[in-house]
Amino acid sequence: MVFPGRLTSLPQICEFIAETAERANFGNKAVYQMQLAVDEACTNIIEHGYGGEDKGDIDCSVIIGQQDITIILRVRGKSFKMEKVPQPKLNVPLEELQPRGVGVFLMQQMMDEIRYERTSDSENVLTMVKRKS
């Protein structure tokens, strides 16, 4: 499924993920976690990868395995250095809490596996795997 790269696409992308995961018999909690990871990923793609709305599409595909589900987001835009995103400082006093890095941290916590690849034809491929627990 291809979605326009704008923030108002987020509900449709999440709905697509939720419907597919429910059909694959994932439970309510896992489905929520997948939606949250995909929402964070797509927000980052739109805001940082594309540098704004309506600069490109988000190609979202899902592969259902026996014991897992693989969500693949293919986009153009800037490359992404996941390892350069700082770990957020959590469990600090409220005044010191900063948003930087929380989105990526959440994606990592919500999914079992996250891989990023920049292909030779300048496509960014983000692969996220969730296993049935």
Binding site: L10, C14, Y32, Q35, L36, D39, E40, T43, L94, E95, L97, P99, V102, G103, L106
Partner: peptide, 19 residues
Amino acid sequence: NFMSSKAWWVLIDAQKKCK
């Protein structure tokens, strides 16, 4: 029924100001 991290930051910012 759904809150992304952007939504939490609205709450965190509001909490900082209110407290």
